[in-house]
Design a protein around this nucleic acid. Structure first.
Lengths: 114, 114
DNA sequence: CTGTATCCAGAATGATACTG
DNA sequence: CAGTATCATTCTGGATACAG
């Protein structure tokens, strides 16, 4: 409670930082967005949807999202292989945040110079 | 409406991408978070609050946030200089999203392995 | 105090080839 | 089809010096 704290209550950034750490990869929110919209996407469909993401980046980001339990990866044991990605329950609970961000973007990209 | 679109309606990512582009800097959300919590912060207070951000990074990110009209920079013409940062109206409208993300973080950082 | 400019190390990213 | 590995390149971020 030193001077620099002033009259302000303690601010707990940890949960906020945790949340950010899960989604701040360059493509993570985009990946989540598309899987949310399409429900289930194969690797190649996802790559096409994202457009200019590279093979390596998509693989890396998908692995991290899966490790963070935001995505579910389902692999079909067949040749050629088929892999589908969908939202995990945890990932699903994050979607309202993305939706809100999307709504905010809609409302604020129309009047960019306000 | 070609085959690869399937039965899915068109998805408009532009506003979403716009929103992401404004906040995906490494420190931007943290900066916004602190200014939101403290209402007004001087440069040096912000630097202390963020902890391990470097001088250069903070300057850069602040300039971008100001250019994107999310922050207001108020400079007092005195020596030594004094600069205060606060949320712009536009920045303020983004706070519900940050709050939601923060809430999500709280709920999901307690049961990491669920 | 609040910045900007420069230089540099390390991380992020991309192109490509290879594997199951 | 869905990935992994390797290497080259680009970009981010940090240390430091300097300026108003």
């Amino acid at each position: 409670m030193n001077k620099q704290e002033g009259n302000l209550e303690e601010v707990n950034v940890a949960p906020f930082s945790y949340a950010i750490s899960l989604i701040d990869g360059k493509w993570k929110m985009h990946i989540l967005f598309w899987i949310w919209k399409k429900e289930i996407l194969r690797y190649s469909e996802l790559k096409r949807a994202l457009g200019n993401v590279t093979h390596k980046m998509l693989s890396t980001q998908l692995k991290e999202l899966e490790a963070d339990n935001l995505l579910i990866r389902r692999e079909y044991p067949q040749v050629p292989p088929k892999v589908e990605y969908s939202l995990s329950p945890k990932g699903f609970t994050l979607m309202p945040v993305l939706e809100m961000l999307c709504t905010w973007g809609k409302e604020n990209s129309v009047d960019l110079d306000e």
